[in-house]
């Protein structure tokens, strides 16, 4: 295979999963929600895109619709689910994702086991694969940039501060006026919207959707990205997404050059599993630690300190 194309392909994947990782970071890293059904919202975005593009809706509307439909589902799921304990929530949304996969697998309108073919978002006449990949990079990283800006703005605001407070101690946060349900529902809604957009990008890039693309495994790959890179650090989870994708490719390339006694896919997931356990044991904060909340509050602190100093020197 063309090595440059291979790299470009890798970059696209990092971008798409970077968006999903940012969305899980919003939910888990900041709001403390154990979303074990991330793939459900990825699926919703992908299938919405596929179904709409089939009837000729332009790609940007497909993407937006994927995000919206996914957000609506996020909100609907959150209404009953948010009152649940962390473990119950995790199991419930995991089951929700599996039900969705069963539906698209069984229903004709979603193409059943054979899925749906999807036309690419932007197809230039006579363009090479390389150019196609570059166009995709442009599209994916544009979406990634928007998502990144949004989550960074939230992380560095009183709103993000409240979210982190709920993650730390929901009773104390409630007693300080932060409605747990409101913040968590919004986190799930926004996170689902982002995952939905990523799903749409994924569908148009691969040019098909299949039930098999949305196994629970996808959810846990994203969890690895977040936990490895650093929960509550948006740069960290992007780093995590890149590392996991590179590692993923690495084990596959390895097999072309070495005779492994073990299937590279098996090896890859064994190593992922071991890696995550090691991270949880020895570096639970991930590679990059939680980012500080950057607002103008620091200016207030500086002023207060200067005032004290001036008093002292008088």
């Amino acid at each position: 295979m063309d090595p440059l194309l291979y790299v470009l392909d890798l970059i696209v994947f990092i971008g798409i999963f970077g968006i999903v990782a940012l969305s899980l970071n919003l939910e888990f890293g900041f709001a403390g929600l154990a979303n074990f059904g991330k793939v459900a919202f990825f699926l919703i975005g992908a299938y919405t895109y596929a179904l709409l593009s089939q009837i000729g809706v332009p790609f940007y509307l497909c993407l937006v619709a994927g995000g919206l439909v996914s957000a609506i589902f996020g909100l609907l799921v959150s209404l009953p689910a948010l009152r649940l304990r962390a473990d119950y929530l995790a199991i419930a949304v995991l089951a929700f994702g599996e039900i969705l996969r069963l539906i698209v697998k069984s229903e004709e309108f979603a193409g059943g086991d054979w899925g749906i073919t999807v036309s690419p978002a932007i197809s230039l006449v006579g363009a090479s694969h390389r150019v196609d990949a570059l166009v995709n990079i442009g599209l994916v990283y544009f979406c990634l940039l928007i998502c990144f800006i949004v989550v960074q703005l939230l992380a560095n605001s009183p709103y993000g501060r409240a979210m982190r407070a709920i993650r730390e101690d929901e009773v104390a946060a409630e007693a300080l006026g932060k409605s747990e349900v409101k913040y968590k529902a919004q986190a799930l809604m926004l996170g689902s919207a982002m995952a939905g957009v990523a799903g749409g990008l994924y569908a148009q890039y691969l040019q098909y959707v299949l039930p098999g693309m949305f196994m629970p495994m996808v959810t846990f790959t994203v969890w690895i990205m977040v936990l490895l890179g650093g929960p509550a650090n948006n740069w960290g989870v992007l780093l995590g997404a890149a590392l996991v994708q590179i590692f993923n490719r690495g084990t596959n390339i390895l097999k072309d050059y070495f005779i492994l006694p073990i299937n590279p896919t098996d090896l890859q997931y064994i190593l992922f599993g071991a890696l995550i356990i090691l991270v949880l044991l020895y570096r639970p904060q991930g590679l990059l630690k939680e980012s500080r909340i950057k607002t103008k509050a620091m200016e207030g602190v500086r002023r207060a300190r200067n005032a004290v100093k001036n008093k002292g020197s008088q």
Partner: peptide, 9 residues
């Protein structure tokens, strides 16, 4: 934020 930080300090 600036104001509140001053008060907090």
């Amino acid at each position: 934020e600036v104001e509140l930080a001053g008060k907090a300090m």
